[in-house]
Write a protein that binds this DNA or RNA. Structure first.
Lengths: 204, 204
DNA sequence: TCGTAACTTTACCAAATGGTAAAAAACTTG
DNA sequence: CAAGTTTTTTACCATTTGGTAAAGTTACGA
């Protein structure tokens, strides 16, 4: 009873992408319930029933977005290499996370919304995809610590604090913009601060 | 044209509180648009029109919540005392923030939702209430640094990182629960990690 | 180029939702 | 306890919203 699953046409690929791009911005700033199909249709210059032609439902768009983006969102974590220099591997990870916060704030906020609200559509994905990767990288970090390459601490909480600090700049940008106006050197100052902070924490 | 503004009756005070309490939990987990008046009415055992008797609109409930809670939410920041011991003042602040993350996760998520979505109903309040306090406390921290009591760094980014790390435990609890199961000693481990981390960062 | 499959548009619908009107009930106070 | 005020309930409404039906249009391979 499953559909033939033929290769999607050029138009299909393009339009699905247009929909995802429009939906990403809207879901990120208004949340799932706060975004309407009409808004998405407007934002990508399509008509509402056309959306449903490409996606079964509003929820299907949301789920597809989460699934599509999760992979690349997590890729920097997996890039931490057990063979590399411990301190530089972690600092490199932090730099990439800061860069992502700046380049992809929509993605950051999409996940922030989802998880703040209890991850109703992502919990299984967290279990199956994030958890194993997380455990593996925690293991690598633990080894580095045992070998005395970096200071000893709870690896999981270390990763939490990296996520918290780096993503904060994307997720809470509205607040930061009020408290630290004059956006010129804000990003640079943030980068420098965060790197200094974690270097200090990680140095044995 | 303003109403007489008589002292609210006992029933009024009680019922407004009931409404706020129910709405807090719902707004925190489903966001503003994701929460319906019917849900709030259900959660506090009242009928929908009764809510409107006490609050002009759904938005009025939300705004009242934000305004009511902002004060106590920020109070620990203001409690940092210029006369106290610098390191212990900041660590004390961090401890209070961790405690609040544990005791009042609903409040934390309410603000997280609001700010992730661009603070549509709170921007003026951030400008008028948070900004002055923030600037003042940044000044105190800067003085401590100049006096060599704690390590030198950008005070604003220091506060951001404290907010990020402490609130992360409330706002992203769903994710943390997946990645670090066995909730027994989680809170204690988090407290110890965060305190260790900032002590290290702040020590000159 | 012709026929068919893929895609788009128009018109529509049922349910959900924020809110109102007004009657009924409960409480307060002289 | 009676009169007036506050609070609660019932019935209702207009709009919004996710989604459908089906006709119309375009793209594309034989």
């Amino acid at each position: 009873m499953t559909s033939p699953a033929r290769k999607p046409s050029r138009i299909q690929t393009e339009n699905r992408q247009r929909i995802r791009d429009a939906a990403l911005g809207l879901f990120a700033t208004h949340g799932f319930r706060g975004t309407t199909l009409d808004q998405i249709a407007d934002a990508c210059g399509m008509h509402k029933p056309n959306l449903i032609y490409y996606y079964d439902s509003k929820e299907a768009i949301h789920i597809d977005l989460l699934n599509t983006l999760m992979e690349e969102w997590l890729s920097p974590l997996g890039a931490m290499d057990a063979e590399g220099d411990p301190l530089e591997e972690i600092i490199g990870y932090i730099r990439r996370k800061m860069e992502m916060s700046r380049l992809y704030p929509r993605e950051s906020r999409l996940f922030a919304n989802e998880i703040v609200q209890g991850a109703p559509r992502m919990l299984p994905h967290l279990e199956s995809t994030l958890k194993p990767l997380f455990d593996k990288q925690c293991g690598i970090i633990a080894t580095w610590m045992k070998d005395g390459k970096i200071a000893e601490m709870h690896p999981a909480h270390l990763i939490f604090s990296i996520w918290a600090v780096t993503q904060h700049y994307a997720d809470f940008e509205a607040q930061i913009a009020v408290l630290l106006p004059g956006d010129d050197k804000r990003a640079k100052g943030a980068d420098q601060f965060v790197e200094m902070m974690f270097r200090k924490v990680l140095t044995p």
